[in-house]
Write a protein that binds this DNA or RNA. Structure first.
Length: 972
DNA sequence: GAGTTGTGCTTTTTT
DNA sequence: AGCACAACTC
């Protein structure tokens, strides 16, 4: 290292991070930095609320963008150390877990902020995106890396991001398990903002310099310390000014960046390949020879950093950047080896203290203190050890599969008492091939590596649907992509048509293809078609998919919710009608149509979810369609779950009676779920099915399909803990390495967004949110949050529209309105849109009303979805947890009020809906005790389980011990 | 005004 | 069930 350089360690953690020492508080960090010889330390963990407060309380501003400890720690330090206080820089490591291109990605990032205000903005953006920052100092969030970078850059123009330990297999940008093949892929269109990468403990610059795509980046090293003692075990040396902006510039250009202090890469936990549990420790060549399969357990070995580097390397030899590289092992490890005791022992601690008091900072002792002085203070053996260390003459046993490697300075017999043989034993030379570095003077910034164009995270990955070129051109093959019964339904002639579509049988697909078929091949005009749904979401989905099939003419099809349709019919007859009570809309529309005669504008009417129509909606349909008219109703009576708000499944069941000569088509081929899930669902609904001869046939045949997991919990908290643990396994571990559960996941992998937890009542959510948050698993309760967001946005917009006294740009008016209503979050959300609209209020109002605009402004983090069974209808997830499957909860029972047969049947349908949301994995859980109706009581599993063949269920453990009462009964 | 009786509670979408 | 609250009665 150049003499005038200073040392920075810009990746550490606080006491609030998982598996980190409780001693990680600012005074201790300052103390240990001084002992180690660090001038600049990252604070780590600034997104954590408690640590953020601790930082604000204890730090005072120093050089631009840097801070120092407000209180003095000089009294704790020996006088041998320079009296310069340690500077701090706001830093945090963030773990992103998300899905891109159908693969789960887990990438760690280091983020730096120049001031507390920017850091606070950054925290708020993450909170707004739905991230949980409280349970771990290193938060796990469901955002795409690219989106995280965007949020970073938005928080401050001076903020920057450095990909962390880029080679580790499980959690990094280039990791073999869940990363990318180039840094640029990871950050997509924002990749140019990445200037430096952290090489991590298991790789050193030489290894990185065999990968030409990394030439574009400065290489930095940090300790990733989980305890104060580990500070500066790796570090970066600078020669620039000691301030945030100079450091940022040095990391961007290399000017002022002197080099790095490194582990011998073999010491890293993931350097080599192997299996820790099987005792297999292989070189990449050995792994290749064994085809990657562990000779002990037969499973693929964990492929380490060295192999990954070789995979991506496009040079046989490294091309040096000219930066200094210093390989070290820590002083306490050197002393531990010499003394024959543990590196964390009291003996070693005492020796280190004495050496620091005599010679100064640990790093100086290891790198620059004259050997004679080391010998004088620490003895000949230590001096020889340090001499060998500085010469790189060490023995290396590589680390693998999470096991640290071992670096030794001496052979065991050299350390025997007597010491005579010490200098006679040949020293083991470096194992790595001699380097042939090419000197390079220029460190000017280079162009980032070119990467193939990537879909950005913002663009949804919609399934490809070919577009019909035009109305006149017959869409040959339009129906080719349907199965036999879907085709029968889609191409049926006019007249009443009822499609009984079981879950996952392609209901929307069939409906959209029918519309497209009629328009493209049967001379039906799109404007003659009316498609009615219950929810805006369903309407949007229908519109979108029709657009994909029909192209531009799709917009001529009227797609509307029942309520929107009612409103427009009323407005045509009573211009200027304002929206009063939502419940009034349907009756009023029906009354008007009844008085004024049938509405004949749409000769072709399509109704989604027909099993959920209520008497008014039914009446409206009768007024839109004559008994022999072209009505196509689609739905599934076994999914009728809305009787509590007036829906009546009888309308579905008597369709053929209401509409003459109705054709009935049944869709039974299920494309959604695995065979065991489908079998269980059919068995569960059978006793109360409203579909004669109910059947569902799995389209996928997978003999490996996992069974349905069943868990008996001791309490609601235990059930929630089970769900949290299982989710951690399913995503292959969130922080520490968990035993991954990859069953049923051929060719794909899982992330948080693929997982849903369903329950009967909203009250159940609290325990689950609590357990998942504690496990750092991001969660979102659907609908609730969104509704709140949307309503506050609406309030702001309504106020903005009303207040004519306000003048100036929309953004200025928005600001004023936000102040008035104290709706800061909503205003923040709308601000970019407002700025785009300038002074055009109409455009602003129109854009807001589409809703999609608002959604697009709010990049939501991927998260496990929590929702009620009712809210889950129409959705599907690769993994579903069905929680609280207990008698009394599902089916819901009110004490003292026995449920009617019809009530029970609807609860059973709710269970059926829940089961059929799952694609690949389904977990059913119930607790033996549960709080209900103000008291905790015993609970039995839902009686609906009785109908499911026990061979389909996989008992995942009974956490509750047999109750004492039962044991006593046995004894009697 | 104090005391009594009755009701609802879960699920939730729609301009 | 068991509580909160509204609508009764005296």
């Amino acid at each position: 290292m150049p003499r005038d350089s200073w040392i920075a360690d810009l990746h550490i953690h606080s006491r609030y991070s998982m598996a980190c020492s409780r001693d990680l508080e600012l005074p201790n960090l300052a103390y240990w930095s001084r002992r180690k010889g660090i001038s600049l330390l990252g604070t780590g963990d600034f997104t954590h609320p408690a640590w953020f407060a601790h930082l604000q309380e204890n730090l005072v501003a120093a050089e631009p963008g840097l801070f120092v400890l407000g209180s003095s720690i000089e009294h704790r330090l020996p006088s041998s150390l320079p009296r310069e206080p340690t500077r701090f820089m706001l830093s945090v490591e963030i773990s992103t877990i998300y899905k891109r291109d159908d693969r789960t990605r887990k990438v760690h990032h280091l983020i730096y902020m120049p001031d507390f205000e920017s850091a606070a903005r950054f925290r708020e953006s993450l909170l707004r995106a739905g991230c949980n920052l409280s349970s771990d100092g290193r938060p796990i969030i469901g955002l795409d890396s690219r989106d995280l970078l965007e949020i970073t850059l938005e928080a401050s123009a001076d903020a920057f991001l450095v990909p962390a330990h880029i080679w580790t297999p499980w959690f990094s940008a280039l990791g073999s398990k869940s990363g990318f093949d180039a840094i640029a892929h990871c950050y997509a269109d924002l990749a140019e903002h990445i200037k430096a990468v952290e090489t991590g403990l298991s790789s050193d610059p030489e290894m990185n310099q065999r990968v030409s795509s990394l030439d574009a980046y400065q290489l930095v090293s940090n300790s990733d310390a989980h305890s104060p003692q580990a500070l500066a075990r790796e570090a970066t040396a600078f020669t620039c000014e000691l301030d945030y902006f100079a450091v940022r510039a040095a990391l961007a250009t290399g000017v002022g960046l002197a080099g790095t202090i490194e582990f011998f890469p073999e010491e890293g936990k993931y350097h080599g390949d192997g299996h820790r549990d099987c005792g297999i420790n292989w070189t990449p060549a050995q792994t290749r020879e064994a085809n990657g399969i562990c000779s002990v357990c037969g499973r693929p070995v964990t492929v380490g950093v060295l192999a990954r580097v070789e995979d991506l390397a496009d040079r046989a030899q490294p091309v040096s950047s000219g930066k200094s590289v210093t390989h070290l092992i820590q002083l306490h490890e050197v002393l531990g080896e010499i003394e024959g005791v543990g590196p964390k022992s009291k003996t070693v601690e005492g020796k280190v203290n004495a050496l620091v008091a005599a010679l100064g900072p640990e790093l100086d002792i290891l790198t620059s203190v004259p050997i004679s002085e080391v010998a004088a203070a620490g003895g000949e053996l230590l001096a020889e050890g340090v001499r060998r260390l500085r010469a790189g003459k060490v023995t290396r046993v590589p680390g693998y599969d999470g096991e640290y490697g071992v670096i030794r300075l001496f052979e065991p017999d050299e350390l025997h008492v007597g010491g005579d043989t010490l200098f006679d034993v040949p020293v083991v030379e470096k194992v790595v091939p001699p380097k042939r570095t090419v000197a390079r003077k220029v460190t000017a910034p280079r162009k980032p590596v070119s990467a193939p164009p990537l879909p950005t995270a913002a663009s949804p990955h919609e399934p490809f649907e070919p577009m019909l070129a035009g109305m006149e051109e017959v869409g040959t093959g339009l129906l080719d992509r349907l199965d036999a019964m879907q085709r029968v339904a889609a191409s049926a002639p006019g007249g009443p048509l009822l499609i009984v579509a079981g879950p996952g049988t392609g209901k929307t697909r069939t409906l959209t293809h029918r519309v497209a078929y009629l328009c493209a091949e049967m001379n039906v005009y799109p404007e003659q078609c009316l498609a009615i749904t219950f929810t805006r979401r369903a309407a949007e989905e229908l519109r979108h998919r029709l657009g994909g099939l029909l192209g531009p003419v799709a917009k001529d099809v009227t797609v509307s919710t029942f309520h929107a349709l009612a409103l427009s019919l009323i407005r045509e007859r009573e211009p200027g009608f304002e929206v009063t009570d939502l419940d009034e809309l349907m009756p009023k529309a029906v009354a008007l149509l009844r008085d004024q005669g049938m509405e004949k504008r749409w000769p072709w009417v399509f109704v989604d979810e027909y099993q959920d129509v209520d008497p008014y909606q039914y009446e409206l349909l009768r007024l839109l369609v004559p008994p022999d008219g072209n009505i196509c109703a689609i739905g599934d009576p076994d999914q009728a779950i809305y009787s509590f708000r007036g829906a009546d499944v009888q309308f579905f069941l008597r369709f053929s009676h209401d509409f003459t000569d109705a054709r009935v088509v049944r869709l039974t081929r299920n494309y959604r779920s695995s065979a065991p899930i489908i079998a269980a669902a059919v068995q569960a609904i059978a006793p109360a099915s409203l579909v004669p001869g109910r059947r569902l046939d799995p389209a996928k045949v997978d003999l490996e399909a996992p069974l349905i997991g069943r868990y008996t919990a001791a309490s609601a908290a235990d059930e929630a803990a089970f769900i949290a643990k299982k989710i951690d396994e399913l995503v292959g571990g969130t922080s520490h390495r968990t035993k991954a559960d990859v069953r049923g996941m051929t060719g794909a992998s899982l992330s948080f967004g693929d997982i849903a937890v369903l329950y009967r009542t909203d009250a159940q959510a609290a325990a689950i949110v609590e357990a998942l948050s504690r496990a750092s698993i991001p969660v979102q309760k659907r609908s609730h949050d969104r509704l709140r967001d949307r309503s506050s946005v609406k309030a702001v917009v309504a106020e903005l529209r009303l207040d004519n006294g306000l003048t100036g740009s929309i953004s200025a008016r928005l600001k004023a309105t936000a102040q008035k209503l104290e709706q800061w979050e909503a205003a923040d959300l709308l601000m970019p849109l407002a700025q785009r609209c300038g002074n055009d209020l109409e455009r602003f109002l129109a854009d807001v009303s589409t809703g999609a605009e608002v959604d697009a402004l709010d990049p939501r983090a991927e998260a496990v979805t929590l929702l009620t069974l009712h809210a889950a209808k129409g959705l599907e997830f690769p993994v579903v947890f069905l929680a609280g499957c207990e008698d009394g909860l599902l089916p819901m029972r009110f004490p003292g009020r026995p449920p009617s047969e019809e009530d029970l049947a609807e609860e059973r349908r709710l269970f059926f809906v829940g089961l059929t949301r799952a694609q690949r994995r389904l977990f059913i859980s119930h607790s033996v005790r549960r709080m209900t109706f103000g008291g905790e009581r015993d609970a039995r599993p839902t009686p609906f389980l009785i109908n499911i063949d026990s061979g389909l269920l996989d008992e995942l453990g009974e956490s509750s011990p047999r109750r004492p009462r039962d044991q006593q009964l046995r004894l009697l």
